[in-house]
Design a binder for these strands. Structure first.
Lengths: 211, 211
DNA sequence: GGTAGTTGCATACGTCGCGTATGTCAAATA
DNA sequence: TATTTGACATACGCGACGTATGCAACTACC
């Protein structure tokens, strides 16, 4: 009746990861007691230290998991768009929307950088910036946008998005604030395009997307 | 020989504030032991709790102080510029440069938001965003820039700046990275201007400012 | 001017949470 | 079957925070 051994191990690892992710995402990293949420998963801190080394290591693992999910979502969004430019804009807007989800906001944009420093410097994390960077490179190759430093621009977009999300989430009327932020954001992006670009019309007709 | 009483009180408060600010700015909020840095100021935690309530209250006070200083610096920078547009650009670049200072970066952009949530929502803090917002309003009134939502744009700029600073500070070659970031940033700002704006030339000639 | 109350700070204590060292039992290996 | 390895639990020490308490100096009032 009991499952094979490696499967059990992966299962406990997953349980710990899920429990930690939930705790970090709701009450925050500093407020999360390792005793508490490991007990909630039917385990103890022993298992945690065995698999992840320490509390920061656990946060690393959680972030890595979430980053992979977010990257997948972003590439999925951009791949569905009819044009590259539209795909890029959709990607950026989707990024803001994701940053609105409390778990992502708390873990990826608040506690993560505070505890681990700039995550984007890490190897094997922050596929999101890489994804944005790739999109910009393609657009540049297509001649759809002005000459820019892709990585630098991707990082600026990343920063603007996450802060916009913070603003939105803490505002009195998130719906209204979200509209304003996305609109301002879109206006900025719009200016990246080459004035004479023939892809301009496709990009100019996008809506703000429902939340 | 002893000073008047209210002055002594203000002095201990200032000493605590300075000690905390230094500790928070160097080793970080979470790693700062209240026993340690109060002892460094020749005091104990008792004084701290008396004046600031708790550790978070102390961080609040530190942030308020720093925010006031930063706001003053920003308005000073923009007021020295020959044109409004240049003043605005200088202000933005100065903002990035300030975000490079380790103390500001750590306290205002990393630990602050992580511990206290979005500071910009607070009353009486974040005069920086207000300052940027004011500059944008004036530029709009002057007809120098395209139609934008000032506050939303100010917040996007704020977010982009702080993340850019993080990127720069953690990069291998901060000088080089700083150049790239400021350049990309300037390129984005440049596009805010109305194409036919007669103030365009003044803004186009600014350099990246020495650090 | 003496006494009562308040204020500014120090001291003492309880508690909690992290990290480490150690123990234990099942599975893999020989 | 004896031994070792790995997965996890238990036990302990330590540091840090917050609170309760103490005390001395200053103020206020009669």
């Amino acid at each position: 009746m009991s499952k094979p051994r490696p499967e059990m191990i992966a299962e406990t690892r997953a349980k710990l990861l899920a429990a930690a992710r939930h705790a970090f995402g709701t009450i925050g990293y500093a407020q999360s007691s390792m005793d508490d949420f490991t007990a909630g998963a039917g385990l103890t801190r022993g298992a945690l230290y065995h698999h992840f080394g320490d509390k920061k290591g656990l946060l690393q693992a959680v972030i890595q998991e979430m980053d992979a999910e977010m990257t997948a979502r972003l590439t999925s969004v951009s791949s569905r768009a009819p044009t590259r430019w539209q795909g890029f804009v959709d990607e950026c807007v989707a990024y803001i929307q994701m940053a609105l989800e409390p778990e992502i906001q708390r873990i990826m944009f608040r506690d993560g950088p505070a505890v681990l420093g700039d995550i984007s410097q890490w190897p094997s994390t922050n596929g999101c910036i890489a994804a944005l960077s790739r999109s910009l490179s393609q657009l540049k190759a297509d001649g759809a946008i002005i000459e820019v430093d892709e990585e630098a621009t991707a990082r600026l977009i990343n920063g603007a998005s996450s802060h916009a999300a913070l603003w939105i989430a803490n505002s009195e009327d998130p719906q209204e604030t979200s509209k304003r932020a996305v609109e301002a954001f879109r206006a900025l992006l719009e200016r990246l395009k080459k004035p004479e670009s023939d892809t301009a019309k496709a990009g100019a007709t996008i809506s703000t997307m429902g939340s």
